[in-house]
């Protein structure tokens, strides 16, 4: 397949079907994301948000449908590690960091560098490695905690550390699953600022329940419902859509 003829979108999902034991998690989901775009995805529980992320990151193979990244890479044929190396980073809903490593080591492991076992066993650290780590710790406000074990961080700090790890990967596309779940209001506001800063030079997909947070991001919104796209557009337009209202309030 030729890159140019396929799509100019950074991420291109078309007609994705995923079935678990007869339960249709995704039914004909189609979505495109332009380079540099930030997109918020909302939807009630069971709408297929997490499954969609699983499909993009190679954790789940779709039964049907196409997933292309950067116009030419067929993600359905690749495993998680390869997809991560292509430049897709993922933040889980529950903060998932390496608890028995220090904050600095967590960033170090995520830092863009050769991932092969041989390289990590014998390779030398890149010259600019330390300055990159410092910069990222600065961004996610964890410079003062660099020698603490990740297990000892607060919930919000773990969320940030995970975002920091995402930045360290320097991905083209970030998938962020409910970044402000369990955060205080001030932490939420800071996270929104952080994400907006990140979005300046990355493409981002944010899955979130918190409408205030989505409003704060001020980006195009896609509403998922029962495994497919129900509505798409600016938040104001979407929240005025009677179908969306029905989905959220009607039952």
């Amino acid at each position: 397949m030729d890159q140019a003829t396929l799509t100019r979108s950074l991420l291109y999902l078309d007609g994705i079907n995923v079935t678990f034991d007869g339960y249709k998690a995704l039914r004909g989901l189609s979505l495109t994301l332009e380079p540099g775009e930030m997109r918020a995805i909302i939807g009630p529980n069971g709408a297929g948000k997490t499954t969609m992320m699983d499909v993009i990151t190679g954790k789940t193979r779709p039964d049907e449908g196409d997933v292309y990244f950067g116009g030419s890479q067929d993600l359905t044929q690749l495993d998680e590690a390869t997809i991560a190396e292509l430049g897709i980073g993922r933040k889980f809903q529950k903060p998932t960091v390496f608890e028995s490593h220090t904050v600095e080591d967590n960033i170090l492991l995520a830092l863009k560098a050769p991932r092969k076992a041989i390289a990590t066993l014998f390779g030398r650290a890149a010259a600019d490695q330390q300055s990159r780590i410092d910069r990222i710790l600065e961004t996610v406000r964890l410079s003062d905690h660099r020698d603490r074990f990740a297990a000892d961080l607060s919930h919000g700090q773990k969320q940030w550390l995970e975002i920091g790890m995402l930045l360290a990967q320097d991905p083209k596309l970030l998938l962020v699953d409910e970044p402000v779940a369990g955060m205080t209001d001030s932490e939420t506001a800071q996270t929104a600022l952080l994400l907006k800063a990140i979005a300046e030079d990355h493409s981002v997909i944010v899955v979130e329940h918190d409408m205030d947070f989505v409003r704060e991001l001020g980006v195009k919104v896609t509403v998922l419902h029962e495994g497919s796209v129900l509505a798409e557009g600016p938040l104001e337009a979407v929240s005025a859509d009677p179908r969306v209202v029905e989905v959220y309030l009607g039952r």
Partner: peptide
């Protein structure tokens, strides 16, 4: 050991 899936998602085989 701590988080196998996480390690995979940051690109380690």
């Amino acid at each position: 050991r701590d988080a196998e899936s996480r390690t995979r998602f940051i690109g380690y085989r």
